[in-house]
């Protein structure tokens, strides 16, 4: 399966289609950090929100770059379960690359400040920032997979799924949302990082994000049963 992950990553990187989401991500981060400086944890919380649709879009592009027949060839060679898993893994690896850029970026443009007296220590801020991004990644990969051509079969539906998913994640993630559980907790995580974070809140947000991703990925697996 590692070989298939490598093949798909290579296909994604070599076609140059990886450039679009990377540029979009950099643009979003530029806007985000262009306004002023913030503490690392708080800044990274917002950065994870901004990157959520970018990571989902990147996943869709990675999965769609491979021609349908090549995806079916891979399915015949390694079996349906491993073919699906390899696509999701490749998307996760690509997402980790984007996250690494997002974590380094604010330091290059002076978007974050070091801790002052009474602030979180720097290491803790960085760790929480990494955590916030890693929480967004599985949900973004799942959303991108649901929007991929293998599931939606048409460019129009694909974009619709992606857009609706990204917009509702923001709209239903607002603090007065009626149904926050319907979407992954990207905004609640950002809000939690703006102030002191209780351990129980951290555990709850982690469980929420993983559960949402698990449900969405189950939908992807179910959808792919009849869609080769």
């Amino acid at each position: 399966m590692t070989a298939l992950v490598r093949l798909r990553l290579a296909g994604f990187l070599r076609t140059g289609r990886a450039l679009a989401p990377v540029l979009a991500g950099l643009l979003a981060l530029g806007v985000l950090y262009g306004g002023g400086q913030a503490q690392p944890a708080e800044a990274y919380g917002v950065s994870a929100v901004v990157l959520f649709p970018v990571l989902a879009w990147q996943t869709k592009i990675l999965l769609d770059v491979e021609p349908d027949v090549q995806r079916r060839l891979a399915r015949v060679v390694v079996g349906p379960a491993r073919e699906r898993a390899a696509g999701l893994l490749a998307a996760a690896v690509a997402g980790l690359g984007t996250i690494a850029v997002a974590l380094v970026f604010p330091w290059l443009v002076g978007g974050v400040t070091g801790p002052g007296p009474g602030d979180r220590p720097l290491a803790e801020g960085l760790a929480l920032g990494l955590w916030a991004h890693l929480l967004a990644l599985p949900a973004a990969v799942a959303l991108g997979a649901l929007a991929s051509r293998a599931i939606t079969r048409s460019a129009g539906y694909g974009v619709a799924v992606l857009t609706v998913g990204a917009v509702t994640a923001v709209v239903l993630g607002l603090s007065r949302s009626a149904a926050p559980w319907l979407v992954p907790p990207v905004l609640p995580t950002a809000r939690a990082l703006a102030g002191p974070l209780a351990a129980s809140t951290g555990v709850l947000l982690t469980a929420w994000a993983l559960a949402w991703a698990a449900v969405a990925l189950a939908g992807y697996v179910w959808g792919r049963r009849s869609r080769a």
């Binding site: 070989a3 298939l4 490598r6 093949l7 290579a10 296909g11 070599r14 076609t15 491979e66 021609p67 349908d68 027949v69 090549q70 079916r72 060839l73 891979a74 015949v76 060679v77 390694v78």
Partner: peptide
């Protein structure tokens, strides 16, 4: 199982050698 599709998906950014080597590794 070896499957030869009706039309080979040639729209891929690999050379013949690199593609076949990658597929051999995918096949284990």
């Amino acid at each position: 199982v070896g499957w030869v599709p009706e039309r080979f998906p040639a729209d891929q950014p690999f050379t013949v050698g690199a593609y076949l080597a990658a597929m051999a590794r995918v096949a284990g």
